[in-house]
Simulated assay, not measured.
Amino acid sequence: MSDCCCNPGVGAQENLPEPEYETYNPSEVRLYGRPAVSRPAVSEENARKIKEGLTRGGIKDEDAEKAYDVVLNVIEDLFVSHHRRQIILSAVDSQGRLITLPVDLNIPSKNYEAEGEHYIKSIGVIYGYAYEGHCYKLPKPQIMYLPSEPRAILGSDCGCDCGYVPELGYAVWQFDKLERVVALDVRSDDLNTLVLDENMPGNRSPMAYAQTMALAPQRHRD
């Protein structure tokens, strides 16, 4: 359980909806963390560059605005169809090309796509959680793809004063414990540390289930 040590500030969050308190769910889990920023498919700067490029191409101002709307619709359609699988890992290489890796996961998607929406609604850096009246801290923050929008923390919403307060930028997600989420374990280090040293005998982390079974006391059968 949390020792209520100081939590880092994670950035300001604005215009978040309030938590849902109308019903009681005994299996509810609340996640505390920092929501990812939502941005349009085409930023204001890129929109300005598109308009300037159309103008330099000899298109008149009134026609450039119409052409921009067409270009914007095409970009948004391509962006949405490309990200229909919801989770795309991407990076920019040394030549400025976008490298993407679509990730297929066991999350509901077909029914949601048929209705014009996605299962994953937000991304957050999760620092801790609350369950059955107790608040806990994760050993290290985790990036999670989540099936609901973040909500604002109201006052001492955390209950035991764990430090997850809106003044530090934290938000809360409310889920049933059986909801499917996606957690990413992101580590950054040199190849020697992440691959070679990590897999030397004696340094390999045991599997959680195998470790639990090995440490569990034996029960004698009658």
Rank of each mutant, 00 (worst) to 15 (best):
T23F: 08
A67H: 06
S27M: 14
E62P: 02
S109T: 03
I123F: 12
N111S: 15
G33K: 00
N111K: 13
E62N: 15
K121E: 04
Q86A: 15
E62K: 10
V70K: 05
L138Y: 14
K121Y: 01
I143L: 12
D104I: 08
R34S: 09
P108V: 03
Y131Q: 04
I99R: 15
G33F: 00
N15G: 04
K110L: 13
R30A: 14
D104L: 11
I75F: 00
T100Q: 05
L54G: 02
V92H: 03
Q13W: 02
S27N: 14
I50A: 04
L78Q: 08
Y68E: 05
E117H: 13
E115S: 05
L16E: 00
R34E: 07
S90Y: 15
V103Q: 09
G96E: 13
L31I: 00
E115I: 08
G128Y: 05
E52Q: 15
K49L: 14
P102W: 01
I59Q: 04
E132V: 11
E22H: 14
P139N: 03
M144F: 14
K110R: 11
Y112L: 02
H82R: 09
P108W: 07
S94R: 11
L89H: 08
R39N: 10
P102I: 04
Y112K: 03
E117C: 14
G33Y: 00
L78G: 06
E76N: 02
I123V: 10
I99D: 12
V37A: 13
I87M: 11
N46F: 09
K110G: 08
A67Q: 13
S90W: 09
D77E: 12
V74H: 06
E113I: 11
A114Y: 04
I88Q: 14
K49Y: 11
I50R: 02
I120W: 03
A64S: 13
I120M: 11
L89P: 01
I126N: 01
A64M: 05
R56H: 08
L105I: 12
A67N: 07
L98A: 09
H83P: 03
L101I: 09
V42F: 03
